[in-house]
Structures are given as structure tokens and as C-alpha cells.
Design a protein around this nucleic acid. Sequence first.
DNA 1: TCACTATTTCGACAAACGTCTATTCAGGGG
DNA 2: CCCCTGAATAGACGTTTGTCGAAATAGTGA
Lengths: 112, 112
Amino acid sequence: MCQDRDVQTDRDACCGLARQPLDSAGAERIAPMFKALGDPVRLRLAALIASDDEVCVCDLTSQFTLSGPTISHHLRVLREAGLVECERRGTWVYYRIRPEALGSLGALLQVG
Amino acid sequence: MCQDRDVQTDRDACCGLARQPLDSAGAERIAPMFKALGDPVRLRLAALIASDDEVCVCDLTSQFTLSGPTISHHLRVLREAGLVECERRGTWVYYRIRPEALGSLGALLQVG
DNA sequence: TCACTATTTCGACAAACGTCTATTCAGGGG
DNA sequence: CCCCTGAATAGACGTTTGTCGAAATAGTGA
């Protein structure tokens, strides 16, 4: 072990994670958001949703070779993590990104 | 469903995810990093490691009520995701953050 | 009312995960 | 050389996850 190093880093800069101590309760609150993005299908879903103001579920499903219920399941995970929101209009359901949620996660990671 | 909305967002700003299409291969490459941060223990470990230049495993283990092997397992996940690196010096092993990895994740999420 | 479509929920199942204990590996000091 | 300590690995076990097909729900329109 300890051999998987191949990148040189600048040691003095670091991220928002370094600034607050992040107690156990905070970690339990935040981790589910990262977890939601930790699946390739959900990450692509999030990117697709983020790439427009809102996206219909039918347009999401058609981008994958997965069943409708599976996409629906992943959308629910993203929704329950607070990363997206949805709205039904007629037969269709439209999903939108919640930029403030993604942004707060980003701030944790961003070098400052 | 569709009731879990409680925050108002500004619709025109969004994150790096929106800018590139993020194909399947890209998602498979990036998702494991989010996944690694998607566990409360690992998120706290990352925060602890980030809060200093380097941290000894013994100082990490003492912060949790988990067994040594469990901490070691989580550190391995963070390591294999490329988020941290380690170095043995004598009996002890020290972990460091890889800020460029966290930063690139952050850029994906950050509103810009 | 009935049929049709879009989406979600339910129930099942294999694979992956988080945790533990027991064991092994690496270094240091008598 | 042997023992002690810090850390990682191996193996086991219960839980969670990702996926599916079948069924239920919501809305449209004849």
C-alpha cells in the first residue's frame, strides 16, 4: 500500500472542508448529498437536468438503456437528497436542479 | 410526491455540471469520488485530513468509536478514489488531502 | 366512462457495502 | 532475535443498493 501517489500538490491551499470541524451530525446531514451524486446514472441525470431550466422525465429516460422505474428510483434519490425538485404539469413531470444545494456542496470542496 | 420543495432558487445560475454533457464514461470516472464522500465517516475523515497538512492514522482512529480496520477500510476507499494520499514514516502512516482532486469536484458543483 | 400514456410504487433478487474479529505485515527497541 | 505497537488485510455477516417486471396512480381525451 501507500504506492498510489502520482500527482504533486500544492500543500498550502485547501477546501472548505478544512475550515469547519464537521461534527458527526453535520456529516450525517451532508453525506447523503454526495452519496446521491456517487452513482454514475444519477450523476448523468443531474448533469442533464442542470443543462437546462427543466427537463421532462421522458427526455431523461430516453438517454439511458435502463427501465423507467429505475430512472424514477434514481430521480427520487436525487430529490430526497435535496439536489433536484420536480413539478407535474399534465401528464408530464419536469425536474429542475436546486443550484443552491449543489453550490453549498461545491463550496465545501472548492479550494479557497 | 412532488411536494418536497421548500426553497426558492434563482434559475439562471448554475454549476459546472451544466456546461459539459458528461457522457457515460465521464460519469463512471467521476462518480466514485462523490461516492467516497457519500459516507458520513469518510466525509469526517476527509474533513479531518483536510484540516491539517497531514494527519496520522492513529489521530484519526481516536476520533471515532469504530474499529481500526474499519477506519483503515474507509481510508482505503478515499485513497482509491484519489482524494487522499498516504505515506508511511516509521511505525506511523500519515494521510494528506489531494486538493486538486477535491477542487475539480468542487468546480463541477460550483455555481459560476 | 373507458382507453391510453407518463410516471411512480411495490416486491423480488443479486451485488455491493459497512462493520466486526482474527490474522498478518512493517518497524522499533530491548 | 523476540516482543510490542501501529496499520492493513482476510473473511464473515447483516444491511443497503441498483435493477427489473408487474401493478398502481395521475392526467388527457374520445
